[in-house]
Amino acid sequence: MARLNVNPNRMELSRLKKNLVVAKRGHKLLKDKQDALIKAFLEKARKVKEQREAVEEELRRCYESFLLARAQTLPAMLEQALMIPGAKCRISVEHRNVMSVVVPEYGIDQEGKALNYGFATTLGSLDVALERFSSIMPKLIELAAEEKAIALMSTEIEKTRRRVNALEHVLIPATIETIKYITMKLEEQERSTLSRIMKIKDIVRSH
């Protein structure tokens, strides 16, 4: 294990011991954060998977209704009916903190009516299709927010994992190794100093 490049003296030894305490505490906090993030991520991922499957099933029914309407309506009439949109959607974005990860929350405000055409030249199947598309919009926006939250949490888990690994496998072992090295050097210096003192005492006594 590589040591840190420091001078082997008591001041550095004291500093490294303090740093080691801080590093171990930080490692524990980051490890706890990582475990909590992974648990929250897995729970959210399961819910979002179910949510996505439900939304995809609704979308399938929407497209089926629209394909039926297109098959039953003349192309020119269908184009004329859909030329001018009757509804507007405004998306608002707020943010909340989930395990130190700032995730978005999208709100949707729908105005107007999806059925913005005369009913004389269109069939009921088109009405059903457009109403279904209109009703699924909030669910699509909510799903987008949840999937964005999952992506952000995944990124944060990866960052935290790298920090935990850096502390666990690099910084803490290197600090421990350096503390042992400095301690050994200081002990050698003490023994050498003690040996010189003893020799000096012997020389003084001999005279």
Rank of each mutant, 00 (worst) to 15 (best):
A2N: 15
Q51N: 12
L194N: 05
R161A: 04
A36C: 01
M99I: 07
C89Q: 06
A114L: 05
V170I: 12
E12C: 08
M11H: 15
I141W: 05
M184A: 09
R161V: 02
A36K: 01
T73K: 08
Y117K: 08
T122H: 12
L152P: 07
A76M: 05
N9Q: 00
N116C: 00
M153A: 00
K139P: 06
R90K: 15
S14C: 01
I141Y: 00
G86V: 02
K31I: 01
P75C: 03
M11T: 14
S100R: 13
D109V: 10
I179E: 10
R61F: 10
S192W: 02
R196M: 09
I91M: 10
G26V: 04
E79P: 00
Q72G: 00
A129H: 01
Q80H: 13
E58S: 00
A144W: 06
L123C: 13
S14R: 14
M1S: 15
R163V: 01
N19I: 00
L42I: 11
A114P: 03
E56N: 15
R10T: 09
L68K: 15
N116W: 03
K47S: 11
R15K: 05
L37R: 07
G124S: 15
M11N: 15
E146M: 11
I141F: 03
K47D: 12
E64W: 14
R162A: 14
V98S: 10
A23K: 08
F66G: 05
A45M: 01
S125P: 02
T193F: 13
E43T: 08
K148D: 10
M11S: 14
A174S: 12
A149C: 04
Y181K: 02
D35S: 11
I176H: 05
H95C: 06
L29K: 14
I172C: 02
T175F: 07
G118F: 03
V22G: 08
A23I: 05
A149P: 04
V102W: 05
V103L: 03
K148W: 07
K139M: 11
L130N: 04
R96W: 10
A81W: 06
